[in-house]
């Protein structure tokens, strides 16, 4: 695909994005360094399992829906989660591929991107509905929770619209402007929002894996290295 756009849109697609991306990276570096400064609780007990294997096991938890009862019993919810997050990755990816590597965005690739954007949009709508109507979800929801899911859902829709015009040979459209303006906003806003949870994910999972891996609760197939009472 070609990406012949106006100079103004080019500015938005590249230098503005780079600046916003640099800002986001800076915020994440601060966020991560703040977390790394917190002391790790010591572990001086004789281990029954492997803390490192536990951490890996726990990090990969996202790919193992059978490992938690909450996902094991809700496969539909897990599939939604998976598609939604693939949609997130591809939609954000599109904002880089379109200006930087338009040749990679063949018609087939673009359609795959659009399928995930469309599905993620529908899942986003369902998630908004769920947050509004399920009492135990509504009671824990903050405005940021609603704003984040709404923003993502609109982002998918705009991305879908922009790409559907783009594959028809219209790269410089109102949809594309909104798409890139939203991307810029995202890059600036996400570090302050719950959407940045993926930065915290490794911390939570590694903490969990180290504790319960060491105690032999996780990755039970790893033989206890040192514990064998006489």
């Amino acid at each position: 695909m070609e990406n012949h756009v106006s100079y103004a849109l080019h500015i938005l697609e590249e230098p503005v994005q780079y600046l916003a991306l640099a800002f986001m990276a800076l915020m994440y570096i601060i966020k991560i360094s703040q977390m790394l400064k917190k002391p790790i609780p010591p572990e001086k007990a004789e281990l029954k399992g492997d803390r490192v294997a536990g951490a890996f096991d726990s990090l990969l938890n996202v790919l193992k829906p059978w490992s938690m009862e909450s996902t094991r019993n809700n496969p539909y919810f897990y599939i939604e989660f998976l598609i939604f997050h693939i949609g997130v990755a591809l939609t954000i990816g599109a904002t880089f591929f379109i200006p930087l590597f338009p040749s990679l965005m063949t018609l087939t690739v673009s359609k795959i991107f659009m399928i995930f954007m469309g599905l993620a949009f529908l899942i986003g709508l369902r998630r908004i509905y769920r947050r509004l109507t399920v009492p135990e979800i509504r009671i824990i929801s903050s405005p940021d929770d609603f704003f984040a899911i709404t923003l993502m859902t609109v982002f998918f829709a705009v991305g879908f619209g922009a790409m559907s015009l783009w594959i028809k040979g219209s790269p410089d459209t109102g949809w594309m402007w909104i798409f890139f303006l939203m991307t810029t906003f995202f890059l600036l806003y996400v570090p302050f929002s719950k959407i940045s949870h993926y930065v915290l994910y490794p911390f939570g999972r590694i903490n969990f894996g180290r504790i319960f891996g060491g105690r032999g609760v996780l990755n039970k197939n790893v033989k206890a290295p040192s514990w064998n009472p006489k």
Binding site: M35, L36, K38, P39, I40, P41, I137, I140, S141, S142, D145, K194, H197, L200, Y201, F203, G204, N207, I211
Partner: peptide
């Protein structure tokens, strides 16, 4: 606020 507590307080996505 050790790392486990801080990550647990920051990490909930509701």
């Amino acid at each position: 606020l050790n790392r486990v507590v801080a990550a647990s307080l920051s990490g909930c996505i509701h």
